[in-house]
C-alpha cells in the first residue's frame, strides 16, 4: 500500500517530463505509420480486401508493430535510464522508492503507448475497409490495449534483468520470441503474447477456422481455448512479469557507483 501511494507521484512527474515536442512527434509518427501503410496497400489493391485479410493487416501493423514499438521505447529503459543518469541512488534510499519508480514508469509507458495503438487501430481500420467496421475497430482497440499492457510488462522485466543491455535484449526478445517463436506451432508459442493476441483476433473477428479444425498444426497455431481464457492468461502473464521485475528489483543490487560492476 505504501508503494501504491507513491506511484501517482512518479506517474505525474514522468508524464510532465515526457511532454516534449520531439517525443510527441515520435509518438504521432508511430501512430501514423500503420494507417499510412494500410492506405498504400488499399491503393495498390484498388478494392476492399476480404474482411479477414483486412483484420489481419490492421492487427499486424497496429496492435503488434505500433503498440510493441511504443511500449518498447518507454518500458525497456525504465531502470537503465535512471542508472545511466545516476539518479537511481536518490530513489534507492527512499522508502519503496525504486518499486514506485518501476511501476510508475510502467504506467507512463502504457499510457503513452495506448493512444498510439488506439489511434492507429481506429484510423487504420477506417482506411483499409468499410466492411463490418464497428466490430473491426472494437476488436483492434481491445487487442491494442492488451498488447500495450502485456508488452509493457515484458519489456520492463527485460530492463530490470539486464539494464546495461536492455534495448538490445528487448529487440532480440521481440524478434526471437514474438516474431519467430510465436509462429512455430509448438509449445514455445504458447508462452508468447503474440500467440494469445492472434488467437483473440481469430475469435473476436469470428474468422472461419474450419480448415484449422482438420489440421493439428493449424490448431496449435490458432488455439482451441476460448477468448476469455486467452485474456485471462494475458493478464496472468502481465502480472507475473511485473511481480518478477519487482522481486528482482528488491533482491538485486543496482547502484550507479562507477566502481560497482554487479
Amino acid at each position: 500500500m505504501n508503494t501504491l501511494r507513491r506511484i501517482p507521484a512518479v506517474f505525474a512527474f514522468e508524464w510532465r517530463r515526457a511532454l516534449t515536442i520531439p517525443r510527441m512527434g515520435w509518438m504521432l509518427a508511430l501512430a501514423a505509420l500503420p494507417p499510412l501503410l494500410l492506405f498504400l496497400i488499399r491503393m495498390a489493391a484498388r478494392s476492399d480486401p476480404p474482411p479477414d485479410v483486412a483484420a489481419v493487416l490492421v492487427y499486424v501493423l497496429s496492435p503488434c508493430v505500433a503498440c510493441m514499438m511504443s511500449v518498447f521505447l518507454w518500458s525497456t529503459p525504465a531502470v537503465s535510464s535512471e542508472l545511466e543518469g545516476r539518479s537511481w541512488t536518490y530513489l534507492s534510499v527512499r522508502p519503496h522508492g525504486t518499486l514506485a519508480v518501476l511501476l510508475g514508469k510502467y504506467l507512463v509507458g502504457v499510457s503513452w503507448a495506448l493512444p498510439v495503438g488506439l489511434l492507429s487501430a481506429i484510423i487504420g481500420s477506417l482506411v483499409i475497409t468499410q466492411n463490418d467496421l464497428p466490430r473491426l475497430i472494437a476488436t483492434q482497440c481491445a487487442l491494442a490495449t492488451l498488447s500495450c499492457v502485456a508488452y509493457g510488462a515484458v519489456f520492463l522485466l527485460i530492463g530490470v534483468i539486464a539494464p546495461a543491455r536492455a534495448m538490445v535484449l528487448g529487440v532480440i526478445y521481440a524478434i526471437v520470441f514474438e516474431v519467430a517463436a510465436a509462429f512455430i506451432p509448438a509449445a514455445i508459442n504458447l508462452l508468447t503474447i503474440q500467440h494469445r493476441l492472434r488467437c483473440l483476433l481469430v475469435r473476436w473477428m469470428g474468422m472461419d477456422m474450419s480448415i484449422a479444425e482438420e489440421s493439428p498444426v493449424l490448431l496449435a497455431y490458432f488455439g482451441e481455448e476460448s477468448a476469455a481464457w486467452h485474456v485471462f492468461l494475458l493478464i496472468v502473464m502481465t502480472a507475473g512479469y511485473l511481480v518478477v521485475a519487482a522481486l528482482l528489483l528488491r533482491y538485486r543490487e543496482f547502484t550507479a557507483a562507477a566502481e560497482t560492476a554487479t
Binding site: F13, R16, R17, G85, R86, S87, W88, T89, Y90, A256, A257, A258
Partner: peptide
C-alpha cells in the same frame, strides 16, 4: 550521493 544524477529538464 557523490555523483550528480539530477534531472536537468525540471
Amino acid at each position: 550521493p557523490g555523483t550528480e544524477g539530477m534531472y536537468a529538464d525540471v
